[in-house]
Amino acid sequence: MSGSPGAGRSRIVTWAVVGLCLGLAGALAWAMLDLPAPSTRLPGQVAAQLERSGVEHPVTAVLLNFRGYDTLLEIAVLLLALLGMLAAGVAPRASAPLGASSMLAALARALAPLMVLVAGYLLWAGAFRPGGAFQAGAVLAAAGVLLRLAGFLPAWTRPGAALRMALAAGFALFLAIAALGLTEGALLRYPEPSAGALILAIESGLTFSLGLILAGLFLAGPELPRREDGGGTP
């Protein structure tokens, strides 16, 4: 074949990339081993301050109280990603629901309410055991994806004002409560007696909006062309 010199060159490029990756991995490992041992014991500090956080589960306390700033930026990044997708333009085509088999439709009908229930449980459980807003939001989004695949939800060719407000609601509520702390002296400093209630309010808003945002990554997009071979309708 005449392509053998090209193939040889691409093999050289491949091995060069592999070599560079191995070098980077080695440098990272060396840098990690070179780090000094942490001088503070963070788990101990979290355990010592857990009573003041308003929740009983240390992971939730870190995510929404001690390091709430990180979580605030995380939801902002997710919202921005979806806004970018919507701004990049979606093919303005009529959004007919997908043709789905009746088996999938029945399964989606049975599962969707259960998934909403599980999301509510995960949200509530986050205060004292593993769970929380991100997991609950992901379950809600999965329910949305399932309903979309079963043909119950149309694609978002042009999200309306209510939907856009709902997408931003979780972030806006988080930001408002964070700004409330400014009266206490610092961003995200919750007044101590009501910290638990505020965290629950933030997590509820986050669950709602995260479910919509994560589902939106799937739902916002050009309509899939309908398959002629598939589907259960004769």
Binding site: P130, G132, V145, L214, F218, G221
Partner: peptide, 22 residues
């Protein structure tokens, strides 16, 4: 690490997988 189990199963495997399939 049960918190990471939930996040990995729901977001890592479930949602990312669905998006990639899409």
């Amino acid at each position: 690490a049960p918190d990471i189990v939930l996040a990995e199963a729901a977001i890592g495997a479930g949602l990312t997988g669905a998006l990639l399939l899409d």
